[in-house]
Design a protein around this nucleic acid. Sequence first.
DNA 1: AGTCCACCGGAAAACATGGCAA
DNA 2: TTGCCATGTTTTCCGGTGGACT
Length: 403
Amino acid sequence: MLDQSSDSLETIFQKALAAPKLFRNHDALRSDYVPDHLPFRDDQITSVAQVLSPLLHSSKPSNLLIYGKTGTGKTAATRHVLSKLTTASKNNGIQATFVYSNVRMAGTEYRVLAELAAQTGLSVPFTGLAVSEVLARLQGQIKNKKLHAVFVLDEIDYLVKLFGDRLLYDLTTSSDAIAPGFLSIVGISNDLQFKEELGARVLSRLSEEEIVFPPYTAQELTTILHERAKFAFNSGAYTEAAVNLCAALSGSEHGDARRAVDLLRIAGEVAEREGSKQLDEKHVRIALQKIDQDRISDALKSLPLHAKLVLIAAVKNDSSENKKSSGTIYEHYSGLCKASGIEALTTRRVSGLITELDTLGLVSATLVNYGRYGRTKKVTPQISQDVLRQAFQDDGVVSQLLD
DNA sequence: AGTCCACCGGAAAACATGGCAA
DNA sequence: TTGCCATGTTTTCCGGTGGACT
């Protein structure tokens, strides 16, 4: 990186222009891309289509639950069917409304409802209303516009885990409130155990139909990846071995196609930036590292202020061996706060922040006992001071503290 | 056998912020 | 304007806890 800093922008652009183009269709490797053809998913696609097809006769389809681990094509297959259904209903003059929301992205019940409402053409404020109020308005909208709606709730297990099944209950039992419109729910879950967290009534309503997406086998994954590569890259722009390696490295044990595709895309970008004519195994390995680094650096940058301070307190070792107890970290931390004129948080909160850093993998914290001398979390930083400095260099207040 | 350290971590309440509705 | 709501962060309160030490 640094040794290129002498290059003027001109030469960088020149290089980019002169470099052979590897990608023919870059978008085909983006994670939200829905390919025309989903290999090895014909059965599932047919099933989904069958469940939803009553829409074309203007009657209410059954609610549907779709299961499968991450990267097994649930979302892609569902969206695929939805887009076909949209065109089919348009062509035949049937009105149907398809609404998609990823619950985890949305984050809260309220935002899920707001997102759903927005897609039915009803705008609700970003905040300020009671959840029940938004629900009532959404139901009103379905009723008044006589919508034939299908709500797809992706990562529905997340919703239930955090907020319980109340919202699902309300949505599945509202048919009276929304007649003559109707509403079917398609729930997509990564978690096969998810049903156990549902109340019996919601469960029976929601899982009128179920479809399971099995993980891809290593063989299938390789085939899929080759197909995508053929579509995304120019011919001769990649080696077979590189694609095989992507499949092997990223997904074969979980059958996770998304990760494999991501890896392939990043490897392609690496190769293109390098100006090489062909994507090969070397680039895949670099990409694998890069994904890791980016993940860490993103995590660091998006940390709230006090979490950053705590992390600095944990990493910045006065060379006295880098394991620290939460007590000493707190001392360091409050020192840092005083130095920069920030009010320090309580020990309880800092303890919580340490736990959060631990789940992010930025530090590792283990509970240790010293009997008579109490017990603490021993905190070992998982990243070096240099990495911190890199990530925080744009953050004036924080970066000063690292010197 | 019992004490007691030095902290953990759950629960609930408080606070802050942003925003609606009437 | 006042009152209510959602959401996220932090504080307060407090009941643990494993084992070295007495």
